[in-house]
């Protein structure tokens, strides 16, 4: 464990807490893409199956349990509890256009052709594009609530910090995992135009609006 990975995990935790707080406090999931949340639940479910087979540390286990539980809790809030506020008309990204190519790629490019490893690879690839429905929804509505932009910023920073962690581990531990690194870079690149808007607008107290 290093400070970059730890701060990445904290940023990830923060993003999830911000999202839950936003939905719970405003009793509304307006502007939130349910499809991205479904993809995240799929990401954690397929990645953390090793919860039962390998123990890394109490921290690792606790975080895995929290990520799985919170992703399903978010889906419950969006599709059941506050479904009246779910903006179905703007959450129209076709998930199958993400899941199917990622599934094929996981079978073709992986470290080991075993069920657990292919599911882990699928999860890594899926996570890199899971935010697309959400970013698509923000571009479609042309704006996002400030709290939602903080959620996206924390979520984007989590994998950006993981990239620093991978550089650190390469130089100090001689460890690297190309699948995680390439997917992590793709994932972070997808946030770049959002990061630009967040820094130039939200941090100056303006509303996050996209040129429609």
């Amino acid at each position: 464990m290093n400070v970059f990975r730890l701060s990445g995990d904290v940023s990830h935790l923060l993003a999830i807490l911000i999202l839950l707080m936003k939905i719970w406090k405003t009793r509304s999931c307006a502007g939130i893409s349910g499809k991205s949340q479904i993809l995240f639940a799929l990401v954690y479910t397929t990645r953390y199956l090793d919860l039962f087979t390998s123990f890394i540390s109490p921290y690792n286990t606790a975080m895995k349990v929290f990520f799985i539980a919170s992703s399903y809790a978010t889906i419950y809030l969006i599709y059941l509890k506050f479904k009246a506020t779910y903006d179905r008309n703007h959450d129209t990204f076709r998930m199958e256009f993400l899941v199917l190519p990622v599934l094929v790629l996981a079978f073709v490019v992986n470290h080991d052709f075993t069920p657990l490893e292919i599911l882990w690879t699928f999860s890594i690839y899926l996570e890199s594009v899971a935010i697309l429905p959400q970013l698509f929804m923000v571009s479609k509505t042309g704006q996002a609530e400030t709290i939602t932009s903080h959620y996206l910023f924390a979520l984007g920073m989590y994998r950006a910090l993981y990239i620093v962690n991978w550089v650190y581990r390469y130089y100090f531990e001689g460890f690297y995992d190309l699948i995680a690194i390439i997917a992590g870079v793709v994932q972070t690149v997808l946030y770049c135009d959002f990061f630009y808007l967040y820094v130039t607008k939200v941090l100056k107290g303006k509303q996050l609006t996209l040129p429609a």
Binding site: K64, F67, H111, D177, L178
Partner: peptide, 10 residues
């Protein structure tokens, strides 16, 4: 690709 024994990252 090299086999990664155990994924210790989240």
């Amino acid at each position: 690709l090299q086999v990664i024994s155990e994924h210790d990252e989240l």
